[in-house]
């Protein structure tokens, strides 16, 4: 009589276990990966080109210097330049812009750097303290549409806050600074 294998040595047990581990891990890794992917944008906006041609960030996102929100440019602002740019008539992406302007519709941008409801972030003090845009938003000369920074969570904020002067730490580590 063939001695039966113990249950934990049977192939189907091992295959099932392997599959389970794979699914769980894969799901976790996949979920994290997907949540860090840049979203689908209405227009494949080439940040690298615009930044490369010397346009400062604050030209299109002026809110960062005075208030909590940097803001997305109005289509009027885009059109202000683009109606004088020859390529506007040829590029298919720019045709979308032209269509939006023509129909007087706002462009449904999907913000990439967005804090959840329970986090209150204010651009102004950060800009005032000399934090450059790249610190948090990455090097836009290397991106077309904006891509999220991996792991931009509370620890990420605190890492930077903890590097500030010690006397600021009380305020910068205070829960009420961001959560209320």
């Amino acid at each position: 009589m063939k001695k039966p294998l113990p249950w934990w040595q049977r192939p189907w047990v091992r295959v099932t276990a392997g599959l389970l581990v794979f699914i769980v891990l894969g799901g976790a890794v996949g979920g994290i990966y997907l949540s860090q992917q840049p979203p689908e944008q209405p227009i494949q906006f080439p940040h690298n080109f615009h930044v490369g041609s010397g346009i400062p960030c604050l030209y299109c996102h002026p809110g960062a210097q005075w208030g909590p929100v940097a803001g997305l440019p109005t289509s009027d602002k885009c059109w202000g330049c683009h109606q004088q740019v020859a390529k506007t008539n040829t590029s298919p992406e720019l045709q979308k812009l032209a269509a939006y302007v023509k129909n007087n519709e706002s462009i449904p941008w999907v913000p990439v750097f967005i804090q959840p409801d329970h986090v209150h972030f204010n651009h102004r003090p950060h800009v005032a303290a000399g934090v450059t845009c790249e610190t948090c938003h990455g090097d836009m000369t290397k991106m077309t549409v904006a891509e999220p920074i991996r792991g931009q969570n509370m620890g990420w904020c605190l890492d930077c806050h903890s590097k500030q002067e010690k006397e600021k730490w009380t305020r910068l580590s205070d829960c009420a600074t961001c959560h209320y």
Binding site: P116, R171, D174, C175, A176
Partner: peptide
């Protein structure tokens, strides 16, 4: 879990909803 803490900078009692 430190959801209600003393805010040192505002000197108030704070409720961190998400915590």
């Amino acid at each position: 879990v430190f959801a209600t803490v003393h805010s040192e900078s505002e000197q108030i009692n704070l409720q961190v909803y998400n915590r």
